[in-house]
Computed example of a mutant assay.
Amino acid sequence: MSDFLAIDIGNSSVKVARYADGQWREAASYPSSLEAPADAWGPRLAKLGARASGVCSVVPNLEARLVPALAEVTGRDPFVVRASSPLPFAMGYRTPHTLGNDRIAAAAAAWLLYGQPARRPVLSFDAGTAITLDAVDLLADGPVYLGGAILPGPHTLRRSLARGTAQLPEVEWERPEHAIGRSTSEAIQSGLTALVLDGMAALLRRAAAELSAPPLIVASGGWGGWIAKRLDMVDHVAPNLVLDGIRLLASGEMGRYDSAPEA
């Protein structure tokens, strides 16, 4: 799909990018604020220019503003990611109506770009304000989205520690050389780093053990690369995983499943 405009409406920011000639090109990010007037979005989106578009949103009020703006800019209604959309896997989540649309898009892209070609289960995590983990297993009847986990992201942890205590400062996020901090700032940095990295490593190991075969692990989000550099268990870093999911689902490029891999 060429000249495709994808919008990922998150809790902290609205990410917009245009896909053309096989790659993501112009990109922009705006605060996820309802204070911006509804008619401000049309000019913003028109600058990128596209003939088709897709939206993934976890902020319904902003989605209600951007969908009409996209339709006006492109001349057609945008594709909107939903749990009810045609997906490249069976839905094994018990409450799909509560599932974040960003998680659906990320899981779809992780499966189509990495899991399906390798014929292996896939675990993907998006590390931002929150860290979300999603699992697609490969069973005899085909790929199945199972679910995953949700936990606070690094900055959320750092800010909550400072705000929830009387004397602990909000420190810069740096990885200390030693586990034992020799100052309060170092002690906080050591504790937060261990919590995120050791916690993610344990979560990924436990999730992998519940799948039918060893999975590929894909990292995304603003903190995805940082975590991946420090955990050798991560196989791929995909900064645009949610945007790719929007694009692939909108285009119907969901691949074809034949049979499960041999044990």
Rank of each mutant, 00 (worst) to 15 (best):
F4L: 05
L195S: 15
E210H: 10
R175K: 11
V237R: 09
W24S: 06
L211F: 08
R182E: 14
S160R: 14
P117R: 09
L66S: 10
D21G: 15
E170N: 14
L168G: 05
S84D: 12
A201P: 03
A17I: 03
A194Q: 14
S185C: 06
A149L: 14
R120G: 01
V136K: 00
N101F: 00
P169H: 08
L112I: 04
A179D: 14
L197H: 03
G92H: 06
H236S: 08
P78E: 05
M1V: 04
A38N: 09
A179Y: 03
G255S: 07
R25L: 14
T165L: 04
P68G: 06
P96I: 06
L249K: 00
G255A: 04
R175L: 13
Y19S: 03
P143G: 02
Y145P: 01
M254P: 00
S13Q: 15
D77H: 03
L45W: 07
A64S: 12
V81E: 01
A208P: 03
K47D: 11
V16Y: 02
R82P: 00
L146P: 02
R158Y: 10
V196L: 11
K47P: 00
G181D: 09
G147K: 06
G222I: 10
S53R: 01
G252I: 01
A109T: 09
P215I: 09
A110M: 02
S32L: 13
A108K: 00
I180L: 15
D141R: 12
I180N: 02
S259W: 08
Q116N: 03
L241Y: 03
L151C: 10
F4N: 03
V14I: 15
I246N: 00
G92D: 08
S212L: 07
S84C: 01
G191T: 07
Q167P: 00
L231D: 06
A109S: 10
G199L: 08
V171H: 09
T129E: 10
S212V: 08
R18F: 09
I188D: 07
R94M: 05
Y145W: 15
G221V: 04
S32P: 10
P121N: 03
D21M: 13
H236W: 12
A207E: 13
G49A: 13
L87A: 02
E35S: 15
Y19I: 04
